[in-house]
């Protein structure tokens, strides 16, 4: 039952009084007007409590839509670790199928195929005299002026009317040096010099197109199927013969170890995933890298049989 007397603080912390002020609750309003009629001496306190509650409103400082979009991507990326293991198995099955199809195409269309295995790079000279450097675990096919890339490749030299195809993007080369990255979750193109035109194709046919200028990096995400310009800051300079990480989250380091070196990475907890790591090693000696990570993270990493790395 209601009390006869209220202090200002008591009014302000009374849920019915707050419902009247903040939610304009009709029932509460009637109740407090009746109470006030019976206790007119409280008019002043009610006014003060009403004013204070009206003033105690938040200054909007929530995340912006851009913040939310960024977090969505960060969560997808970080939690993608688990999904990727499943996808890997799935793509292993799909890959053998693709291989059959592409061998079929090979005989029909005479595409030449060059692949690199785990932990190796290879330089390929195209018929027009230009060069392509393939990163580890990459397949290049070419026929005439068309090149297909699965993996990561760096194009340099004078290219004439070259068109680079991936399953979700086409890059039309207008004389240039650029890097293309086409693996499971996204396709990235980094333009060092010259000029290229990129457009969505295959699964990202609706992604539109863009002209790139030197220093730009474009990323096509498999989830959103949208192209966006991103900062090339953390670009891995594998073409210099070293694997370089600068302030790179460990989950990204792990992704490189999986994609380029065929390691299988297991996380016993995710606390290490966002830890940032800086360091480099020769492309053909990941032992140095693994030892460096181990020394930084106090033996919370172990390398087991079958190329399995476990982060505790």
């Amino acid at each position: 039952m209601d009390q006869e007397q209220y202090t200002v603080a008591e009014l302000m912390t009374n849920s019915s009084f707050r419902a009247w002020v903040n939610q304009h609750d009709e029932q509460a309003r009637t109740h407090w007007e009746q109470w006030l009629a019976a206790h007119p001496e409280h008019q002043e306190d009610v006014n003060t409590a009403f004013t204070l509650l009206s003033i105690l409103k938040e200054n909007e400082n929530g995340p912006s839509p851009a913040d939310m979009a960024e977090m969505q991507e960060r969560f997808d990326h970080a939690l993608g670790q688990r999904l990727r293991v499943l996808m890997y198995r799935w793509t292993a099955a799909a890959a053998s199928l693709l291989l059959l199809i592409s061998t079929g195409l090979y005989f029909m269309n005479k595409r030449s195929t060059i692949s690199t295995g785990i932990a190796m790079t290879k330089e390929v000279k195209l018929p027009d005299g230009s060069k392509v450097l393939l990163n580890a675990n990459t397949t290049l096919q070419y026929k005439g002026h068309d090149v297909w890339i699965e993996g990561e490749a760096y194009f340099s030299g004078e290219h004439h009317d070259l068109k680079v195809h991936t399953d979700g993007m086409e890059v039309t080369v207008l004389g240039t040096a650029f890097n293309i990255y086409n693996r499971k979750q996204h396709i990235e193109v980094l333009l060092e010099s010259g000029k290229v035109h990129v457009n969505g194709a295959g699964w990202a046919a609706t992604a539109g197109s863009a002209d790139m200028t030197p220093g730009e990096m474009i990323r096509l995400d498999a989830g959103s199927k949208k192209m966006e310009r991103i900062s090339p800051g953390s670009f891995i300079s594998w073409k210099s013969g070293r694997l370089v990480f600068k302030n790179t989250p460990l989950y990204k380091v792990a992704a490189v170890l999986e994609e380029n070196y065929g390691f299988h990475v297991q996380w016993k907890s995710t606390t290490l995933q966002m830890e940032r790591f800086s360091g480099s090693c020769p492309l053909d000696n990941t032992d140095i890298l693994l030892a460096a990570i181990r020394s930084v993270y106090n033996d919370r990493l172990s390398v087991q049989a079958n190329h399995t790395i476990v982060f505790e």
Binding site: D67, E70, M71, R74, A78, S269, T271, Q273, M274
Partner: peptide, 13 residues
């Protein structure tokens, strides 16, 4: 954002 990312991921795992 970093703190909340870690937080939600720890929560999920």
């Amino acid at each position: 954002k970093d703190v909340l990312q870690d937080f939600f991921i720890e929560l999920f795992t």
